[in-house]
Design a protein around this nucleic acid. Structure first.
Lengths: 324, 324
DNA sequence: CTGAAAGCGCTTACAG
DNA sequence: CTGAAAGCGCTTACAG
């Protein structure tokens, strides 16, 4: 029922070859013939079926993106960076999630193995790294978006400067005259936690380091705990903005003024960082840029440019607002 | 270089037809033969190229999702609902965004016209509706996810109860003894704004209605304005959680206690609603469920079940926390 | 400048 | 139970 290249050829009185030629605007075709073919194409509303083109050419012009979850607060930014870049290159974007557990992972690897995409972008939880590495080994070009500062990705990747970011936070707090910082980290199993802490420490030795989850709750609990213990601190470095938001809330509940009594610095620069009270000073992670850069790298790889061996690093920067 | 069905057939000493049969587990194949073929498949690591299967079968087993932006706070939830459902059905998910303006839209319609997907899920800004309707007219099954309460989508859609949601907010504020509500709405061009207002009004006539954007800023400005004008209000119904967050902040800055002096109800139930101070009472929009339901509807449609004519409605519900 | 033919990697009547 | 052949809708040497 849908119109094919044969229909166009017949109507225009030429061969499929010729139709293909005017479609792909490569070889020379007689101007009059081309015009006639174009007319028929328009009249019939013909659009070449991409699947057939792909099979004939052997490439899908599709890039896949794998992400553990798409509901994380900064994931939208990464995804948008990827989507914009991929689309600008005329590629389609396929999205996979590991929301459904092992079944999801199986679905994902099956699709990639079946070559639905020419290349793969992935944000990979540590435990899924082997599966992705295996796909790469079997020939799918992969670029990792490294959200957690993995030590040796062994695959081309795009990361950011967790250590320098920690240092930026420390230097800023020192510059505004703080000397007794409380540091609230995420789970130490994430590489970024150690790195941020290390960078911070170089600039400003912490009075106390408390570990927790990357949640608002952790920020609240940590500050309440420190207060209850009578810890003497004049600053908080939170390992993400949600922890920072919790800290702000606990400080206010305890009657401490921010930034006068306690200065607070977060990490990430989520949209909500603008609307905490006071607005949060934070270390911005360039999530959208990272997504875009990873996509560019991959697309360049698909175009023939060899993928880099190590990690492309896009620096964090400090966004100074009102909390420190 | 990659192994094909012919390689398997040759190695196993059978025809491609037979290999295809054991692959698709339909017809009967001699047990011993099947076993041999399976061995060869395993040994060679053969995975059928999905593109070729799709061309032969005439269906892509791919669903596309179109969204204006993927960075909106609730978009991740919708997307996750879609992704989980689509994946569970063994379909792949293709993602399109209109981030790049008209070029994006052109890219998107080109891909769909080229039949990269069997069906389409879309969150559509009013101005893009004609383009999507045209794709539907040309034969692509479409289900809309209606975030803004469009009047007559003219296409199958999944929506929520904006009017009833407004009524839930009003009824709750009345139940907690409020009688002079300030309502802060989003832009009236969105159908949902009128509907939420109408539902609210049935339960509790507003003292004042202020229009703005769906932003924290609007919430702050509106409350400051009302306060400056000496408006006497004991409640705020904000048309989304971000407006509510701004209202909370302005109220606190003005020394008003929430919920004692002023009770505040939001709309959406974003993750941040848990961590405002006080935690926000709000009307939950079932975004993930809407995404999942839209995907189910579409997949059923692809399976032969006729798509419903009108709108599938998934109700909002009131989440009572501390702000009202 | 143009076309017949082979090929991309599968599936599916059809015949045996 | 099995295979030869045609077909899905394109592209691309090859020959003219």
């Amino acid at each position: 029922m849908p119109v094919t290249i044969s229909d166009v050829a017949r109507q225009a009185g030429v061969s499929k070859t010729t139709v293909s030629r005017v479609l792909n605007a490569g070889a020379d075709v007689d101007a009059a013939t081309a015009a006639r073919v174009r007319e028929v194409i328009a009249a019939l509303g013909y659009v070449p079926r991409l699947g057939a083109v792909q099979l004939a050419r052997g490439r899908s012009r599709t890039v896949a993106m794998f992400a553990p979850s798409v509901t994380w607060p900064w994931m939208g930014e990464v995804l948008q960076g990827v989507a914009d870049t991929v689309e600008a290159a005329g590629y389609a974007l396929m999205l996979f999630t590991s929301g459904g557990g092992p079944a999801s992972m199986a679905h994902f690897t099956a699709q990639v193995s079946a070559r639905v995409c020419d290349g793969l972008l992935a944000i990979v939880p540590e435990r899924c790294l082997p599966a992705v590495a295996e796909l790469a080994r079997r020939g799918t070009p992969v670029v990792l978006i490294d959200d957690h500062g993995h030590r040796r990705p062994a695959l081309p990747s795009v990361g950011t400067t967790n250590r320098a970011g920690g240092a930026q936070a420390g230097a800023h707090l020192r510059a505004v005259g703080r000397s007794r910082p409380l540091v609230i980290t995420g789970p130490p199993r994430f590489g970024c936690v150690g790195q941020r802490l290390e960078g911070f420490r170089e600039q400003l030795p912490p009075t106390l380091v408390l570990e927790g989850e990357f949640t608002e709750r952790t920020g609240r609990d940590a500050v309440e705990h420190a207060l209850a213990q009578g810890v003497d601190f004049d600053a908080v470095f939170a390992h993400n903005d949600q922890i920072a938001a919790g800290a702000l809330r606990a400080l206010r509940a305890a009657g401490r003024t921010v930034p006068d009594d306690v200065a607070v610095v977060g990490f990430d620069d989520l949209p909500m960082a603008r609307s905490t009270d006071p607005a949060l000073t934070t270390v911005r992670q360039p999530m959208r840029e990272m997504g875009g850069a990873a996509a560019s790298l991959l697309l360049a790889g698909l175009g023939g440019t060899p993928l880099p061996d190590g990690s492309l690093v896009i620096p964090t920067d400090l966004v100074v607002r009102d909390s420190a």
